[in-house]
Amino acid sequence: MPKAQQTVLEIDLQALKHNFEYLKSKLQSNTKFLAVVKAFAYGSDAHKIAQFLQELNADYFAVAYTNEGVELREAGITKPILVLHPQTVNFKVLIEHCLEPSIYSAKILNEFIDVASKENQTNYPIHIKFNTGLNRLGFSQNETDGIVSKLKNTKVVKTKSMFSHLAASEDLNEKDFTISQILTFKEIAKSFEKGIGYKPWLHMCNTSGILNYPEAHFDMVRSGIGLYGFGNSEKENKNFKPIGTLKTIISQIHTVKKGESVGYNRAFKSDTVLKTATLPIGHADGIGRQYGKGKGFVTINGQKAPIVGNVCMDMIMVDVSNIDCNEGDEVIVFGKNTTAENLAITAETISYELITAVSQRVKRIFTQ
C-alpha cells in the first residue's frame, strides 16, 4: 500500500479470510458458522465485511440492532441475519426485511407473536435465548415450561435455534464456571426439545468458546473478535491477523521550550526542550482522552512516540524528540505489529472498545 496521506483505516481482507479459515478449522464439517458483524463490523465496515464473508460461505450473520440488519439487507446480504437485541418498536421493520429476532423474555415473545400475527406470518424463525450465568439478557431455566407452552399454542413463530452466551470463555481460571454454564444449557436444551417436539439448532460458543471448549460447539458457533484478528490470549493472538491498520500523518512539528505547555488545560508542561508532532486524529476519531498524558503512543518510523498532554477532538500531539521524522511522514496508531490490543492496554481497556470506536469519518481502504 502507498504511504498514508491522511487518517485512514486500512482493512486487509486476506487477513479476514485467514481468521475465518482458522476458526473454521476448529469446527466439525457440519457445524455452522455465524459471523458477528454488529457495531459496523467491530469498527471496520459492516457492508464490505459481510459481503466478503458471504462470498466465503459464512452461514449466518448477527447484528445487535434491527437497523444494522436492515442496512445489510440493503447492501445485498442474503444470508440469514440474527438480531441479538431487537426492540419492540422495530418488529414490523424486522419482519419486512426477513431478519430473525433473539427472543429473550416473556414480554418480547408475546409482543413479537402479536406483531408477526398482524403481519400474517406463519412459522416465522425466532431464536430463544437463555441466561446461563452472564446475567445480561435471556430467559431463566425455570421459565422453560412457560415458553414451550406458549410456542406450542401458536403457528405464528417457530424456534429456529436456542442459544446462550458464555461469560468468561477466554479465562481458563474460570473453567469450572464455564463448564457449569455448558451443562446448564444442555439441561435446558433437553427439556426444551422434549417439550417442543422438535430439535432447534443449539449455539453457545463465542470466539474463545470456539478455541477453548470444542465440546460446546453444538450446531453452530458465533465469532466476532476472532474474525477481526484477536484471540483473547497471548497464545491464540499468534494464530490471528488483525485486519485493521489505523494510519495517520504528521501535520506539523513543533519545538517546545522548557517551561512551555502543550495542548488544552496545559496538561503537559515541558521540563526540557523537546520536539512534538501534531497528528490529524483525536477523540472524535476514536482515540479517547484516556490515551493522553503519556499513556498511549503511536509508531513513527518504527519507534514509539508517546501522546503528549490531552487528546483533542481532532488532533493529538506526540513526543518525537528522539525520532528522525518530517512533516507528512506516515504514523501507525495500531495495526499488525503494534496491535489495537497493545494500545488498548495502555488505557486499561480492551481491543474491542478501541476498534469499535474508530469513527466513520475515518476513510476506509480495503486491500486484498
Rank of each mutant, 00 (worst) to 15 (best):
I113P: 11
A62G: 00
A58H: 10
F112E: 04
Y124H: 07
I103Q: 11
L72N: 02
P101M: 07
E111M: 08
V115M: 08
Y60T: 01
A62L: 00
V63F: 00
Q51D: 04
Y124E: 02
S117T: 15
N57H: 14
S44G: 00
A62W: 12
K79G: 12
N57W: 05
H85L: 13
P125N: 02
N110M: 07
K79H: 05
H97G: 02
A64C: 06
K107R: 13
V70H: 12
I95E: 03
N110S: 15
Y65G: 10
T122C: 08
K38Q: 01
Y60L: 03
N90V: 00
N90T: 11
E68L: 01
H85R: 12
D59P: 11
I77D: 00
F40L: 14
I49L: 02
N57C: 10
A75F: 12
A50R: 07
K79V: 04
I49S: 02
V115F: 10
D59L: 01
Y42E: 01
L56I: 01
V63R: 01
T66W: 03
I49T: 03
A39H: 01
Y65M: 11
F130S: 08
Q121R: 12
S44E: 01
V36M: 00
N131S: 09
V37L: 03
V89T: 13
I77K: 09
L34F: 13
N90Q: 10
F61M: 05
L82S: 05
V37D: 02
P101Y: 07
P86T: 01
L99S: 01
E96Q: 15
Y60S: 00
A46M: 04
I126K: 03
V37E: 02
K129T: 06
H127F: 15
L84A: 02
V63G: 13
T78D: 10
L53W: 06
L109H: 04
L94N: 06
